[in-house]
Design a protein around this nucleic acid. Structure first.
Lengths: 150, 150
DNA sequence: GGCAAGTCTTTGCGTGTGCAACTATTGCGT
DNA sequence: ACGCAATAGTTGCACACGCAAAGACTTGCC
């Protein structure tokens, strides 16, 4: 169609590689966290909340941090609340908004899960570097000096 | 715990970035393909099959290409078969295996979907390059000279 | 030939997800 | 003060997914 059909194909390949690496990491993390009865998104919530240094987080922020829809976020928070890992707090200044906060049990489980998560991530990335199709992207992850998705 | 806690944190940030970019690309692709009644995985199947130049593909290969479980692959193929986009072929040399092949309608829909897919991908990557947290990774996708996941 | 072990695919079941519709609350214009 | 649009979060519904068990077929070994 246009001149840079080749560039488009390069991007499509890059996207396939990204998707493959993402799927590989996610499924490994998923399996390593089942022992603690946590899914990857659930860990992401705990991680995001603890990263806020005891601060609250709105549902919408959580939805962006987990790349989930509002409805999925509602039920995710409900699940974790039912397990006593976090609490909903209706904040006074805007009564539409709802803040979530880790409980002591939530912080405890996070501290337990984090080394499992990190070791698995390290192992999977090492594996990925051995696969020629994934190596470049996997290595690119090491040197990325970015802030987390707010 | 160990000396390179910093390195671990760098990898964790890289993983969060990867997940964020992946989610962003996937949801945009999903929305752009709904007009053709295709999900991203369904497009991936069409793409993988057409990339085989009219050749067959085993269920298991399809499962790896889509990062899906065997059961999900079965139902995915069934969906596409019911729509007449591909056919199951029991191959003679190993009657455990089942090959799938695009029909004429499947190739037609793929040719229709591909430009939509590619243009969306290009647009999203351009957007990602403007976000400082995603820019490095998004740019890394341009120059990756890898083969597709077989 | 026949039985055991292994591989490829399919089905049953429970669960998480997105979309659309709904409720509650805020902010703005009149 | 009132209504009206916009925003935050929740619920109904249909659907796609993973896991575990079962079915179909192959391979190896006796």
């Amino acid at each position: 169609m246009s001149i840079d059909d080749g560039a488009v194909e390069v991007r499509a390949q890059g996207w396939r590689t990204l998707a493959a690496l993402h799927g590989m990491i996610e499924s490994e993390l998923e399996r390593s966290l089942t022992a603690l009865r946590l899914s990857v998104v659930e860990y992401t919530v705990l991680d995001a909340l603890s990263r806020q240094d005891g601060w609250h987080m709105r549902m919408q922020q959580l939805a962006r941090a987990t790349a989930l829809s509002p409805s999925a976020t509602t039920r995710l928070v409900t699940r974790l609340e039912d397990r006593g890992l976090l609490t909903r707090i209706l904040c006074a200044d805007d009564r539409r908004g709802i803040y979530t906060e880790l409980t002591a049990a939530g912080r405890e489980l996070y501290l337990e899960a984090r080394p499992v998560h990190d070791e698995t991530l390290e192992r999977v990335l090492a594996e990925a570097e051995d696969r020629p199709e994934l190596a470049v992207l996997a290595r690119a992850l090491h040197g990325i000096p970015v802030a987390a998705v707010q």
